[in-house]
Nucleic acid binder design. Structure first.
Lengths: 129, 129
DNA sequence: TTACCTGCAAACCATTTGCAGATCC
DNA sequence: GGATCTGCAAATGGTTTGCAGGTAA
């Protein structure tokens, strides 16, 4: 409803997310931006992250353990979480590659399944040996 | 390491979870048990829930939004979360029915995928219309 | 007797929010 | 000028923890 105004802080956050593959937490973003913009506050980082999520410009990743992480790529895609180092990585899948599991799950279910949320676990390339 | 002693509180919690399909939060469990056991504390509920999870006797369900929920059925199975009423329900699937998605995800991934965590979303039987 | 367990309350952590002033349009 | 934004700091909500006393084996 309300129209967004330009905000240097929000631009900085968006730009930071566009240039990292780290899937950082709000605090990681805060720490990093503070190096060039020492006055920014953590509250502002959270407020803008939520705004950007609402606008569909970024994605919030809530995988059970630890703080939420954020992804500058708003296209739906899957994520991998390393059980050793806790890093989060993108998983490249053809669009819709897992859509069929909604049907599998629907087979014996009474309600209406509209989607799913999946995280893959294991050891990342650095942690496997 | 340490051996568990009998505890009336822990038994009560286990029994409560064994007899509900609600997938309650720690607080729901606390509120309910307090009706017959007014002295129990929320800290004790949390401590025992974590112990039971460590023992593999119950499961903790951490789906992004809201408090964690607990399931008295320790066998791995899938869950559905209603986007309307927030209820959590079991999804009955043949064991291993979705194991193949690990292979799909592994195809273009560098690390070693050992498992996945999936929640289904939609409207439950009560909320669809 | 001695682990382990409890209630209580305070601590913790991630996130949100109220406020008074600054900024964009 | 007025709505939207900011920094700050306090509040919130869920969960954990330290402590001193209680209980099972």
């Amino acid at each position: 409803m309300s129209n967004l105004k330009f905000s240097r802080q929000r631009e900085t956050i968006k730009e930071y997310l566009a240039n990292t593959k780290e899937h950082p937490t709000a605090d990681m973003i805060y720490m990093s931006i503070r190096e060039t913009n020492p006055n920014i506050s953590l509250g502002t980082v959270y407020r803008n992250l939520n705004l950007l999520v609402d606008q569909g410009e970024i994605i919030k990743i809530s995988h059970g353990t630890g703080s939420d992480r954020f992804d500058g790529n708003p296209k739906p895609h899957y994520h991998f979480v390393c059980t050793a180092c806790s890093c989060v990585q993108d998983i490249e899948l053809a669009p819709g590659a897992l859509d069929h599991i909604n049907l599998i799950a629907s087979a014996n279910f009474n309600g209406e399944i509209k989607g799913h949320s999946t995280f893959f676990y294991g050891h990342c390339a650095n942690c496997k040996r």
